[in-house]
Computed example of a mutant assay.
Amino acid sequence: MITLHALKYSRATRVLWLLNDLGQPCNRIDYDRTSAFRAPDELSKVHPLGKSPVIVDGDEMIAESSTILRYLAAKYGDTSHQPAAGTPAFWRHEALFDYVEASFAEVALQVILPAFNGEDAPRAAKAALADHLDYIASEVGGGRFLCGQTLTLADIQMSYILALLERMELLGDHPKVLAYWQRLQQQPGYIAALDAAGPMAPPR
């Protein structure tokens, strides 16, 4: 059975979500954040950088939530969370999947982190975030999710940053993205993950 090292209020919820969708159990080891909202020293005994999530599967130790999601989909032969391999839709999905952490997260955190500290983000940071939220809205288009009517790995990956943005009340001017996020929160795997491990974002 896979062991999941899960930091509270973190990207680990993404992994639990997919495992629930796949009907696969895990041995979950939970870690509380420090008073400074950082990962505890115990996680550095699991991964040199104190990463979470981290999964251990036999001799394999894998960090980075995107890699973990891809690993789990491959391990369990899941084809329901991605378009058919090699198609244009598949490569669009892969680009959106990697976009979340490669591009969107950095921009979003430049606004989220000041908000956590009760500070106002620079105007340029807020403008950049607005551009990205407009982009996400356009990618959702008229469908329920990023790739139409079917939930994909890209949607699961997107969830954590959207949870933080909603927590800081930063989605109000972007109703299409907010509606998309609300649809994600209605998914059974997401609900089961929160029931098991608590919310993605810290409470107000």
Rank of each mutant, 00 (worst) to 15 (best):
I2S: 00
L4M: 03
R11E: 12
A12M: 06
A12H: 05
T13W: 05
T13P: 00
L16I: 02
W17L: 01
L19M: 13
L19G: 10
L22T: 14
L22I: 14
G23I: 11
Q24V: 15
Q24K: 14
C26T: 09
R28N: 03
R28S: 11
I29A: 03
I29F: 04
I29T: 05
D30Q: 01
D32M: 11
T34V: 06
S35L: 08
A36T: 14
F37G: 02
A39G: 13
S44N: 12
S44E: 13
V46A: 11
H47S: 10
G50R: 10
K51E: 14
P53S: 05
V56Q: 07
G58M: 11
G58F: 11
D59N: 14
D59K: 15
D59L: 12
I62C: 04
E64F: 04
S65R: 03
S65H: 02
S66P: 02
S66D: 14
L69A: 00
L69D: 04
Y71M: 07
L72Q: 03
L72Y: 13
L72W: 06
A73G: 09
A74I: 13
K75H: 02
K75W: 05
Y76E: 00
D78G: 09
D78I: 07
H81G: 09
G86E: 09
G86M: 08
P88V: 08
R92V: 15
R92A: 13
H93Q: 06
A95R: 08
D98W: 09
Y99R: 13
E101N: 10
S103K: 09
S103R: 10
A108N: 08
Q110N: 14
V111N: 01
I112N: 02
L113M: 11
N117L: 12
N117Q: 14
E119S: 12
D120E: 15
A125N: 13
L129G: 02
D131K: 14
D131Q: 12
H132P: 01
D134V: 09
D134H: 03
I136Y: 06
G142L: 09
G143P: 09
G143Y: 07
Q149K: 08
Q149I: 05
A154M: 11
Q157D: 11
S159Y: 08
L164N: 13
E166P: 10
E166T: 01
R167F: 10
M168A: 06
G172D: 15
D173W: 09
H174V: 03
H174L: 07
A179G: 04
W181H: 13
Q182T: 12
Q182R: 15
P188W: 06
I191Q: 14
P199V: 10
P203N: 01
